[in-house]
């Protein structure tokens, strides 16, 4: 009797801690985003005034200002171009590597997996200066393609790891069955593997897109005329009034959030959590 009582109270306490942790984690992410939203949709007076309101005024003046801001649209287009090139390159290069990691045994496979992650170990500021010098030498400085190359380098490790986990999730027997049914390695991939991993590949592509979209340091260092949105906003918001900083931040955060939300299932899969 007493044990069952203490058990229920332990379970109840456990649930409480669990619920509280979840709420705390959610708040940690959601509160800043909510405040960003409130301030974006408030008039300049409300943003710099006190006390703060926690309900937005639905004043779109700040956003409208950005829509008409010169250079804004071309920066947005640059961002999309760079992100799109990054997306294509990182899948074209990353997916075959992921396939090889999942299907073939080769010498140094474990080391190779480690090295993929190691590319993220060097801070970008360390690489940016030599890269800039090199890009100037070959004429890639201040170009969309040059910046996309740097972003691809940043996105490839994730593309490789996500596709590796996708390919590993497809039983090798399915491929073997296709070979015994008249397929070559290539047509087997085309008719059996590709249709099965296409949603995951799409997700991994979107993730690469977001990495490029969010990247600011390389973009700021490597471009002058052809700024991407992040670099453009960084340059201009620094000297802007507070309400415009909020609105600029909002413009940057929302697309990334939407994309990540769309592909969350596959990102979980990458970290080894079952994606059912």
């Amino acid at each position: 009797m007493s044990t069952s009582l203490s058990n229920t109270s332990t379970v109840r306490a456990g649930r409480w801690v669990y619920g509280a942790s979840v709420a705390l984690l959610c708040a940690w992410v959601l509160v800043p985003i909510y405040l960003l939203l409130v301030n974006t949709l408030s008039s300049p007076a409300a943003v710099s005034g006190f006390p703060k309101s926690f309900v937005p005024e639905f004043d779109t003046a700040s956003l409208e200002f950005f829509a008409g801001f010169s250079g804004m649209v071309s920066a947005l287009i640059n961002s999309i171009y760079v992100a799109a090139i990054t997306m294509v390159l990182s899948i074209v290069i990353g997916a075959p590597a992921g396939y090889a990691l999942s299907r073939f045994d080769f010498k140094g496979k474990e080391l190779f997996r480690l090295l993929i992650l190691l590319t993220r170990a060097f801070p970008l500021p360390l690489l940016a200066l030599p890269l800039t010098v090199m890009f100037i030498q070959v004429g890639l400085d201040d170009t969309i393609f040059g910046l996309a190359l740097v972003h691809t380098t940043l996105a490839i490790p994730f593309a490789v790891l996500i596709t590796f986990s996708l390919f590993s999730g497809i039983p090798v027997e399915l491929e073997e069955a296709s070979w015994t049914l008249g397929c070559t390695r290539l047509t087997g991939f085309r008719y059996v593997v590709l249709p099965l991993i296409l949603p995951g590949i799409t997700a991994s592509a979107i993730f690469a897109f977001v990495i490029s979209w969010n990247e600011v340091f390389a973009a700021a260092v490597l471009t002058i005329e052809n700024r991407t949105l992040t670099a453009f906003l960084l340059q201009n918001l620094d000297t802007s009034p507070l309400h415009l900083k909020f609105a600029g931040g909002f413009i940057l955060v929302v697309p990334a959030l939407v994309f990540i939300f769309a592909v969350r299932k596959y990102l979980f899969a990458m970290w080894g959590i079952a994606n059912r």
Partner: peptide, 16 residues
């Protein structure tokens, strides 16, 4: 495999 005139049934079925 495709040119050997064989067909195979797998242990875990391997149904696409």
């Amino acid at each position: 495999p495709k040119d050997r005139g064989i067909a195979m049934v797998f242990q875990n079925y391997a149904v696409f």
